[in-house]
Design a protein around this nucleic acid. Structure first.
Lengths: 224, 224
DNA sequence: GCAATAATGATAGTATTACTATTATTATTG
DNA sequence: CAATAATAATAGTAATACTATCATTATTGC
């Protein structure tokens, strides 16, 4: 994506942090390096102590920004879905055909992520890898209902809702738009993960990006 | 499913355990109660200590059966996929039409699970809930490549392979059979979880089981 | 029936984790 | 320049995921 002239920043709801990491240099380093570290060693092995050493601060300081590493993960995934929504808006505004809007939306959700230079201290490629491998852990736990009530998954739901509406524009009688969209999002993540680690569960072809093709075909055939 | 006269037992490869839990009463209680406990409190909060207290033994004894709680989870998911394969064979043998075999296979993977009285100390309904909420954690971690080499996911892959072959029987030109099947399996789990905890991501209808209908439609439209 | 062996129980110990708490020091702001 | 806020340094805690040791109890082979 082309770099924009103005400086952009994704605003994240204060439900995820104690002190806004966007408001200080040390906070920005927390975000920048947590993405690098979590992608490298995985969320289980990631600790605030390791992060503190990496950015030359102390555990106590990080705890003043995030009350737990789980909350930090929620912050990062929320950032990711907000970023996705912003990219979605750019991709589909002024496109008249609903089919083309849907085509672009599914593309956005299933194609390989590239870095976006508009957001300086976030590496979107690494963040995408984190979302692929770790985001499901943010809702696959016993706090899911409490956190859902707090609004932890609102951005994700909003994105699903938006694309569901395009589907209903194309076929108002299609009964499962939300199922279809959430299956595509989670499915695309999994297929990328399988391609890397469990190729027997997918159909990879190094020459072409079959993930996006598979899901586009699946969506358009399902709703016709 | 009807109860069979003979006593069945699912044989699990010895790569998952130190001592076969099927070989002793205490081992069987480990399996029985680990399923009950993990379903109730979640895999994160589950510990060998809690399990030991529950079944009136000690941590040390449980460690003599499983080298870690992660290995126990691999054992349980492996059991689940073996059980699924056994049910699949029952459901499709002697069915001539490939379409009908596929229809039954997808049904098996997406419909609500009912208890199977053939396997005394395993509660399949609870185990299904564990697979839905926890199984992805067994491969979404940094040991995935090592464990894959050890054969930890063979049963899962075998099931995907089997159903992929039915798809290719129906349409030999379909390019993504494995992708489609693994998307259905993981997608069905997720949709059941969403229906319970994040209904905004799905399309539930208490009157009918829309999960199975959605995925059947998706599969048959995708491959035609 | 009894010795040999295996399985289990009881108990202790360790490194790490995910925090909380306290106090001193340094930056920032009015 | 005083007041306030942010950060650093350090210590401490309960829980976790194990490992280790040794005594006790079952099981099996002869």
């Amino acid at each position: 994506m082309e770099s924009l002239t103005s400086n952009l920043s994704i605003q994240i709801s204060d439900r995820f942090f104690v002190k806004n990491p966007d408001s200080s240099e040390i906070g920005q380093r927390i975000i920048e390096w947590s993405i690098i570290l979590i992608e490298e060693i995985g969320f289980e092995a990631f600790t605030f102590k390791k992060l503190a050493i990496q950015i030359g601060t102390t555990e106590a300081t990080i705890y003043r920004y995030f009350e737990s590493k789980h909350r930090l993960l929620l912050y990062l995934t929320c950032w990711y879905w907000s970023w996705m929504e912003y990219r979605l808006l750019f991709a589909i505004t002024n496109v008249e055909s609903a089919e083309e809007r849907l085509n672009r939306s599914i593309g956005l959700l299933t194609e390989v992520i590239e870095e976006d230079s508009n957001f300086s201290y976030v590496n979107e490629v690494k963040l995408n890898n984190i979302v692929i491998a770790e985001a499901s852990k943010s809702y696959l736990n016993k706090d899911v209902d409490k956190e859902n009530k707090e609004g932890a998954y609102l951005n994700y739901k909003k994105l699903v809702q938006r694309i569901s509406e395009i589907i209903l524009e194309i076929n108002p009688n299609y009964k499962y738009p939300h199922m279809l969209v959430s299956t595509v999002i989670e499915g695309a993540h999994l297929q990328r993960y399988f391609a890397e680690h469990l190729p027997g569960l997918t159909d990879t072809n190094s020459k072409e990006d079959s993930v996006a093709k598979f899901f586009k075909q699946m969506v358009f055939k399902s709703i016709e």
